[in-house]
Lab assay of single mutants.
Amino acid sequence: EVTIKANLIFANGSTQTAEFKGTFEKATSEAYAYADTSKKDNGEYTVDVADKGYTLNIKFAG
């Protein structure tokens, strides 16, 4: 089991951190699914992958 950390960075400057656990593939998939659901309210996003994929910096356009 691994933990994927997602740092969500919103257009207004606020941030949120979420953690997803499971296999690398499952946790990563859940992090992207979470970003997709947040996209409806926060606009399109880009992802900067860090820490060999264990940290995702997800920046929303607003």
Rank of each mutant, 00 (worst) to 15 (best):
E1R: 09
E1S: 11
E1I: 15
E1Y: 13
V2Y: 05
V2M: 05
V2D: 03
T3F: 06
I4K: 00
I4F: 01
I4C: 01
I4T: 00
I4E: 01
I4H: 01
I4S: 01
K5P: 00
K5G: 03
K5I: 15
K5H: 09
K5E: 05
K5M: 09
K5N: 06
K5W: 07
K5R: 14
A6G: 03
A6I: 15
N7Y: 11
N7Q: 08
N7R: 11
N7W: 06
N7M: 10
N7K: 09
L8F: 14
L8T: 02
I9N: 06
I9P: 00
I9M: 11
I9R: 07
I9C: 10
I9T: 12
F10L: 08
F10N: 03
F10Q: 04
F10Y: 11
F10W: 07
F10E: 02
F10K: 04
A11S: 12
A11P: 14
A11T: 08
A11F: 09
A11I: 09
N12V: 04
N12C: 11
N12M: 04
N12Y: 05
G13F: 05
G13N: 06
G13D: 04
G13K: 06
G13V: 03
G13P: 00
S14R: 13
S14C: 15
S14M: 14
T15I: 15
T15G: 07
T15S: 11
T15N: 08
T15R: 12
Q16M: 13
Q16K: 12
T17C: 12
T17W: 09
A18N: 08
A18W: 10
A18Q: 13
A18C: 15
E19C: 15
E19D: 08
E19V: 12
E19Q: 10
F20M: 02
F20S: 01
F20T: 00
K21T: 14
K21D: 05
G22E: 03
G22W: 01
G22Q: 02
G22F: 02
T23R: 06
T23L: 08
T23C: 07
T23Q: 07
T23E: 09
T23G: 06
F24S: 03
F24W: 12
F24V: 07
F24G: 02
E25Q: 11
E25W: 07
E25F: 07
K26S: 14
K26T: 12
K26F: 11
A27M: 02
A27T: 03
A27D: 00
A27W: 01
A27R: 00
T28H: 06
T28S: 08
T28E: 06
T28G: 03
T28M: 14
T28K: 08
S29R: 14
S29G: 10
S29Y: 11
S29P: 01
E30C: 12
E30K: 09
A31M: 03
A31Q: 01
A31Y: 01
A31F: 02
A31R: 00
A31V: 07
Y32G: 02
Y32F: 13
Y32L: 14
A33E: 11
A33T: 08
A33W: 09
A33G: 08
A33I: 09
A33N: 10
Y34D: 02
Y34A: 05
Y34F: 14
Y34M: 09
Y34P: 01
Y34V: 05
D36C: 09
D36P: 00
D36R: 04
D36H: 06
D36E: 14
T37H: 14
T37C: 15
T37F: 14
T37Q: 15
S38A: 15
S38R: 15
S38E: 14
K39P: 03
K39G: 08
K39T: 10
K40E: 12
K40H: 11
K40R: 12
K40P: 12
D41V: 13
D41I: 14
D41M: 13
D41C: 15
N42S: 09
N42H: 15
N42C: 13
N42D: 05
N42M: 10
G43Y: 04
G43C: 06
E44C: 13
E44R: 07
E44I: 08
E44W: 10
E44D: 13
E44T: 10
E44H: 10
Y45S: 02
V47Y: 04
V47F: 04
V47K: 01
D48N: 11
D48L: 10
V49P: 06
V49L: 09
V49N: 05
V49D: 03
A50Q: 14
A50K: 11
A50R: 12
A50H: 10
A50I: 12
D51M: 03
D51S: 03
D51Y: 03
K52G: 15
K52V: 06
K52N: 15
K52E: 15
G53Q: 03
G53S: 03
G53E: 04
Y54K: 07
Y54L: 14
T55K: 04
T55F: 05
T55G: 02
T55S: 05
T55C: 06
T55E: 07
L56M: 06
L56C: 02
N57R: 04
N57Y: 11
I58G: 00
I58M: 10
I58K: 00
I58T: 00
I58V: 07
I58Q: 01
K59V: 13
K59Y: 15
F60H: 02
F60M: 03
F60C: 03
A61L: 15
A61Q: 13
G62A: 09
G62H: 08
G62T: 09
